[in-house]
Design a protein around this nucleic acid. Structure first.
Length: 477
RNA sequence: CGGGGUGUAGCGCAGUUGGCAGCGCACCGCGUUUGGGACGCGGGGGUCGGCGGUUCAAGUCCGCCCACCCCGACCA
């Protein structure tokens, strides 16, 4: 790399973000504007995210399937709000095999419509319900302004699509999957999120209700990190997804959809990263432990390497990398792997061979305080405990940061001040006019009505009219 | 799509009044190094974003186009 140091987060947060992603080899810019290449290290992180989520989807009764990339244009047009929401950002194929197509094909921006069409063919009876399907795939949304991971023209995600016999079941499913996302974010990614409901203006185009998990990034901006929608009967009516109930009455289904994308990688980067670089939570880190062997001569090398291999063997149930590059110094490797976010580093040198020790350095505690010498005996246990401790500390640290940057405004002027660098938690009457005013005055939007602590009577912070609940206002990505 | 900026080696940049296309890092080879970002010597690498114009001569001057980045209006 040309420059050794990253830009400081405090000086230029977005430059820090962009450079870090490229230097750590998570992703690179593709030859097409707004598209990214996810590189092996970034994809390995995504695979770990996929595994953690997929396990939870299966445990809640879902199955995976795959639906087509192309959707007939007419499908999108069947749900009014849906097409209005998505038409400005559609990529449309008009030529195939050199011939102009009879009907243009949309590259899926999301799959409610094709899946709805298929469900209408598959569902006949209440006995067919519920249908619980998830798909891992890619979608395209023609965004004007793009950022690696946060907003790219094409992104990777999972989208769950379910159909139910009753409104209540659909709502339960929507909330269950929001809980799954919350559990994943908090316990796997160490990203403390606030689950809540989106306002009418912020909800998904075509949904009856949208839920979200909102996370605070290192610059205090909010990031919608996952969403779960109760689609009511909107898509069921548009695509005639109908079933005969126990009383032989034809009814429309109640459907849901929920998604989490590669954007979440952006959430991990910006929740945990520091001026030194990435900081990955141990549970999701592509490399959990890096071993740096240290030797000066061939003779020392011959003594050190067998122990390195032995230690690696002791940690065989972890994702361990031995950095045996001979062309760079240990000091370079320390900085390199810290930049790449590896949670724990083990150094093994001649002194350790003599003492039967190794040096351990925690990524989450910089410098000497994070470094300790421990015995090789029981190392597997020591490392396992340490990784768990790192996981826990990272969540704690992120939570403290978030809570320290959420404030309850005294009045509207105070709210305007708060959202310049933090989140405001305040009563809101529910009118979109008040939301719009805040947005116009401050660029901050309502993020969500939290499921916990949201219900509260008071006066709207904007207009003073009676309010039934409190919401978070913040600038967002 | 509006405002601003940048395009010269993989990356970061310099290039004077128009006159043989350079520097640092990275890369390759050899040697010395290695517990917090090593060093020496020797190498390889370029349609100067594209097209057109002015000129004996264009990286440099003029015109048009394109791409990317940043800031705004929209979004997982």
């Amino acid at each position: 790399m040309a420059d050794e140091k990253l830009p400081l987060r405090s000086e230029n947060y977005s430059e820090w973000y962009n450079q870090l992603i490229q230097r750590a080899e998570l992703a690179d810019y593709a030859p097409v504007r707004g598209c990214m290449v996810v590189r092996p290290y970034g994809w390995a992180l995504w695979e770990n995210i996929q595994q953690a989520l997929d396990k939870r989807f299966k445990a809640t009764g879902h199955q995976n399937a795959a639906f087509p990339l192309f959707i007939p244009m007419s499908f999108l047009e069947k749900e009014k709000e849906h097409v209005e929401g998505f038409s400005p950002e559609l990529a449309v194929v008009t030529i195939g095999g050199g011939e102009k197509l009879e009907e243009p094909l949309v590259v899926r921006p999301t799959s409610e419509t094709v899946i709805g069409y298929m469900y209408s063919r598959w569902i006949k009876s209440y006995r067919d319900l519920p249908v619980l399907i998830n798909q891992w795939g890619n979608v395209v949304r023609w965004e004007l302004r793009t950022r690696l991971f946060l907003r790219t023209l094409e992104f990777y995600w999972q989208e769950g699509h379910t159909a139910h016999a009753t409104e209540q079941e659909a709502e339960e499913e929507t909330r269950r999957m929001l809980d799954v996302y919350t559990d994943f974010a908090v316990n796997e990614a160490a990203v403390p999120v606030i689950p809540g409901m989106k306002s009418a203006t912020e909800k998904f185009a075509g949904a009856a209700r949208s839920y979200t998990i909102e996370a605070m990034m290192g610059d205090t901006k909010a990031l919608q990190s996952g969403t779960s929608h109760n689609l009511g009967q909107n898509f069921a009516k548009a695509f005639e997804i109908q079933f005969l109930d126990q009383n032989n009455v034809l009814q429309h289904c109640w459907t849901t959809s929920w998604g989490l994308s590669t954007r979440f990688i952006g959430a991990i980067i910006m929740t945990h990263g520091d001026d030194q670089g990435l900081k990955f939570p141990p549970r999701l880190a592509p490399i959990q432990v890096v071993i740096v062997p240290i030797f000066r001569s061939e003779e020392e090398r011959a003594r050190v390497m067998p122990v390195v291999e032995q230690v690696k063997g002791m940690l065989s149930d972890l994702r361990v990398k031995v950095d045996d590059r001979s062309e760079v110094t240990p000091g370079f490797k320390y900085n390199d792997w810290e930049m790449r976010g590896v949670p724990l580093r083990i150094e093994i040198g001649p002194k350790d061979i003599e003492k039967g020790s190794v040096a351990l350095a925690r990524r989450d505690i910089p410098g000497k305080e994070g470094k300790q010498f421990v015995s090789q005996d029981g190392l597997a246990e020591t490392v396992k405990n340490l990784l768990e401790d790192i996981q826990k500390s990272m969540l704690e640290k992120a939570r403290e940061f978030r809570d320290a940057n959420i404030h309850e405004p005294r009045d509207y002027a105070h709210l305007q001040e708060i959202v310049q660098d933090g989140w405001a938690f305040a009563h809101w009457c529910g009118s979109s006019a008040c939301e719009a005013k805040v947005k116009e005055d401050t660029k901050a939007t309502t993020r969500c009505i939290p499921l916990e602590g949201g219900k509260s009577k008071g006066a709207c912070i904007v207009c003073g009219e009676p309010a039934e609940y409190k919401v978070y206002f913040a600038k967002s990505y």
